[in-house]
């Protein structure tokens, strides 16, 4: 077995351990958010080493074979979550919501068979890694905003079901719903800037590779739809002053669209710009 896979399994173990730790901390107060972040740190270090070794061995970044695309996605989302939790301490309980969801992706990564794929001739450009990096920052921001949104929706659900005296029963140590709404909007704002950059850099790459900046291939069209969805959210949030629960739903819709664009479209698109596959 190649060394990169030892590090991959090491990181997978720690990702799952961090997930269990986050659920335990949310429910029983143990082992605490700091140990969970440490577990995540170990997992991320292993994941980084695994991806780096693969990059060096193959001579191209983790954006060709589907296994490495998922692995680099797992890496990017966890890195975004760690940064957010270090920046804003009070949102650490989102780990209990987001890590179980990301665990599905971690397990998905385990069942996909890794292949050594050749990078296509048209992928041999500096714009591709730049496109991938800004894209990862965008979706990382959306993952954080979505996690916060899930908590807003859980609180709303709690209130509707009259399960508690107040809506803050779910994750009481976290900021008020209004503050969470503002936090998620901030992450969406940052994400929006990087999403716009991702589209522009992607267009420059497309011009370099195929002679056109934009050709409405399925991946381009779905990325554009995701961009429109974020614009719609921004206008509702900042101009119509919509309710946090509506904002949360739109953020989750953005996440679903972005996720399907990254990992779904390549399954049924045979266009030149096939993304992950």
């Amino acid at each position: 077995m190649l060394t990169e896979f030892y590090f991959f399994y090491f990181s997978t173990g720690f990702y799952l351990l961090a997930t269990l730790g986050a659920i335990g901390t949310a429910k029983y107060g143990k082992p605490g958010w700091k140990p969970v972040l440490f577990f995540l740190g170990f997992a991320l270090a292993g994941n980084t080493l695994s991806l780096t070794l693969r990059w060096v061995r193959q001579g191209h970044g983790p954006y060709v074979d589907f296994w490495e695309v998922i692995s680099s996605g797992v890496w990017g989302y966890h890195l975004a979550i760690i940064i957010a939790c270090l920046m804003v301490e009070r949102i650490r309980p989102i780990l209990a919501v987001v890590l179980p969801i990301l665990s599905v992706m971690v397990i998905w990564n385990l069942v996909v068979e890794p292949r050594d794929a050749l990078v296509a001739i048209t992928f041999d450009t500096i714009w591709l890694p730049v496109h991938v990096i800004v894209g990862k920052i965008f979706i990382g921001c959306v993952v954080i905003a979505s996690s916060i949104s899930l908590i807003i929706l859980m609180r709303q659900y709690g209130e509707r079901q009259e399960l508690a005296d107040n809506a803050a029963l779910y994750f009481p140590t976290m900021p008020a719903t209004g503050a969470l709404d503002e936090l998620s909007a901030r992450f969406m704002l940052v994400g929006f800037v990087f999403q716009t950059l991702m589209l522009i850099v992607g267009a420059i790459w497309a011009q370099d590779a195929w002679g056109r900046y934009w050709a409405w291939d399925p991946l381009e069209t779905w990325s554009f739809l995701t961009w429109i969805c974020v614009i719609f959210y921004m206008h509702l949030r900042y101009i119509q002053h919509s309710l946090p629960v509506i904002n949360a739903c739109l953020i989750l819709l953005t996440f679903v669209l972005a996720f399907l664009t990254f990992y779904g479209v390549p399954f049924f698109s045979y266009a030149a710009h096939q993304g992950a596959v």
Binding site: M87, V88, E89, R90, R155, Q156, E159, N166, A167, A168, P175, A176, T177, G178, A179, D181, E182, L183, R186, R237, Y238, H241, S242, L243, P244, V245, N247
Partner: peptide
């Protein structure tokens, strides 16, 4: 600042859910 729990944004204050 990022780590401020209270924000003075309209939509945050005007909504009944914000407490």
């Amino acid at each position: 600042p990022w780590d401020a729990a209270q924000y003075s944004l309209k939509s945050s204050l005007e909504n009944p859910l914000n407490r």
